[in-house]
């Protein structure tokens, strides 16, 4: 279920923790699996559980608790826009509206071509760069004015 490469990466994470605490690597393992598969299907979660010797529901608890794990399929690019107060004061809501309009989808929706999914996010710790936005969880973009959004969308292929 998990590729050799994913297993190798997970092993690296496991090594950070005491020998009897493999479970500590579960957040990394889920992240690694999600990057590889696009989202966390039940089989993927079960595979992670198996790999780390955890009960599947214990892994599911983790996967469903943290926002950045996707328990259902998402587009190739998941755009998460922060609309929390500090961002909202400097255009966060506008940025979300702009994206909704431009992509023709609402929050938690995916464009028909499967390219973009739009999500509403909570504070990303980048309020100084408002509006802040995450691309596929790992790329944090600031100052997302319409121009910047256009540029970003054009660049994402």
């Amino acid at each position: 279920m998990l590729s050799q490469e994913a297993q190798k990466q997970i092993d690296r994470e496991v090594a950070k923790y005491p020998a009897d605490q493999k479970q500590s690597a579960v957040m990394s393992a889920l992240r690694i699996a999600q990057v590889e598969k696009g989202w966390l299907a039940p089989e993927t979660i079960a595979a992670v559980a198996d790999y780390l010797g955890m009960a599947p529901i214990a892994v599911y608890e983790v996967a469903s608790f943290y926002n950045m794990y996707d328990l259902s399929p998402v587009g190739r690019f998941k755009l998460t826009v922060c609309t929390n107060l500090p961002c909202a004061l400097s255009g966060g809501v506008h940025a979300a509206d702009y994206l909704k309009h431009k992509l023709g989808i609402g929050f938690n929706e995916t464009t028909p071509d499967g390219k973009f999914t739009l999500k509403e996010g909570e504070c990303m710790g980048a309020c100084g760069d408002a509006p802040a936005m995450l691309v596929n969880n790992h790329r944090l973009c600031g100052w997302m004015t319409p121009d910047q959004i256009d540029k970003l969308l054009a660049e994402l292929e």
């Binding site: 950070k16 500590s24 957040m27 889920l30 608890e61 983790v62 943290y66 926002n67 969880n137």
Partner: peptide
């Protein structure tokens, strides 16, 4: 070592953070 969160404000609370490092919610 570095350990990463994955989207949960509550993990800033110190004991939630410890639980999180332990591989729990």
């Amino acid at each position: 070592h570095a350990h990463h969160g994955y989207g949960a404000y509550i993990c800033g609370e110190e004991t939630a953070l410890l639980e999180s490092i332990e591989g729990k919610k």
